[in-house]
Structures are given as structure tokens and as C-alpha cells.
Simulated assay, not measured.
Amino acid sequence: MRDENCIFCKIIAGEIPSNTIYEDDEFKVVLDVSPASKGHALILPKNHYADLYEIDENVAADAMKLAKKLAIHMTDVLKCDGFNLVQNNHEVAGQTVFHFHMHLIPRYLNAKNNDILNWSHETFSPEEMAEIRDSLKMQS
């Protein structure tokens, strides 16, 4: 399944050139054209899913398995000091291309962009935390 208007679908189809670092029947992994760090890559499922809410759960599980393999490989090759795995859903959360993708971001000590994932922490009272907890509880 493909979205004709999706830039990632076009990259997967080879209509737009990319720096591909991995490809199999289910995924294509490319270097990000606007990287946050050396080696920043994107895991793209070959089938189009807009976001985490739409992606098939087996494909999502396979994406995470691939992310682990790539993080280990990239850490070894690039000698990075840490790693971020980022996956945004909806515009308010920073999603700019509406094709599910995972960012693999190698992190280096003393590099620029070391604050890329910082945020201000919020404070909730114990009562508010209990209310939030109770509202989110799910059965396994």
C-alpha cells in the first residue's frame, strides 16, 4: 500500500534519491537529509502507515527489532556515545511527514544539538498523579 503524495513512499520507490544504509522486504533505512547528528537515519516501512495509530502491530514490532540491530551496528561503526530513538505522532508532537518512521539519532559527547530532546518538567500533586494513573489503567 502506497500514498502517491507521500515523499517517503517516493523515496522507498526510488523516485527520489536517498542515501540508503539498509533495505529488506519490509523496510528501507535512509540517512536523514536534515540530520541532527552524524549518522542520523530514518527507518521507513515500505507500506504506508500515517503514524503509530495506523501501523500494523507486527510491522511496529519488526521496526523496533530493526532499530535495535541498527543502533548496535551504528554505535560500533560511528563510535557514538549514546543513542536516541524517536518516533513522533501528529503535528503537535513534531511529526512533519505523515508516513510512520523512526529516527535513529547517534549522540556524541560535546557535540552541538546535545539539547535536542530536553523539555521543561511539569509538576503534579499526588492527587493529580493518582487521578492520571487511574484514568490510564488498562487490563493486560
Rank of each mutant, 00 (worst) to 15 (best):
A71Y: 01
E54F: 03
A60T: 02
A67H: 00
V33R: 12
A36G: 13
F98D: 04
I43M: 04
H40A: 09
E122Q: 13
L109D: 08
E26F: 10
C80T: 15
L44Y: 07
Y49C: 05
A111W: 00
S18M: 02
N89M: 05
L42C: 05
W119V: 02
P17N: 12
D25P: 01
E127N: 11
I55R: 01
K10A: 14
K79Q: 15
N47E: 15
Q87C: 14
T123F: 04
I132K: 12
N113A: 11
H73D: 14
E57G: 03
P35C: 05
G82C: 11
N113C: 06
F98Q: 03
P35T: 06
D62S: 14
N110A: 09
E127S: 10
A71K: 10
A13P: 01
A60F: 14
H101I: 15
D134R: 11
L78Y: 10
K68T: 12
I12A: 11
V30W: 00
T96G: 10
I12L: 11
F98W: 12
S140V: 13
Y22S: 05
V86P: 01
N19C: 04
E128R: 08
N5T: 14
I12Y: 01
L104P: 02
V59M: 07
P45H: 06
N58C: 05
V77S: 11
D76M: 10
I116C: 03
P126V: 08
C80D: 11
A130Y: 01
R107D: 03
D76W: 05
V59T: 15
S125V: 11
K79T: 10
S18W: 02
L70G: 00
N47I: 02
S140C: 07
N88C: 11
D115G: 13
P126N: 08
N118L: 10
R107W: 04
Q87G: 07
T75E: 09
E91M: 07
K38V: 04
E4W: 01
A61K: 10
P17I: 02
F98L: 09
V59Y: 06
H101L: 12
D62L: 06
T123S: 08
P17Q: 15
R2D: 07
A36W: 04
I132E: 08
K69C: 05
S37D: 02
K137Y: 01
E54H: 09
T75C: 08
F98H: 14
N19I: 05
N19F: 12
H48F: 08
L109W: 06
P106C: 10
N89T: 15
H73I: 06
V59P: 03
P35D: 09
A13I: 03
N58T: 13
M129S: 04
L42S: 08
E128G: 01
I11F: 04
R2A: 02
H48C: 09
M102T: 15
A130F: 12
C80Y: 02
K137E: 10
F83D: 03
A63V: 06
K112P: 00
S37C: 05
Y49V: 09
V30A: 05
A13K: 15
I16M: 13
K28D: 09
T123D: 12
E4I: 10
H73S: 15
H101D: 08
F83Y: 14
H103T: 12
R107F: 03
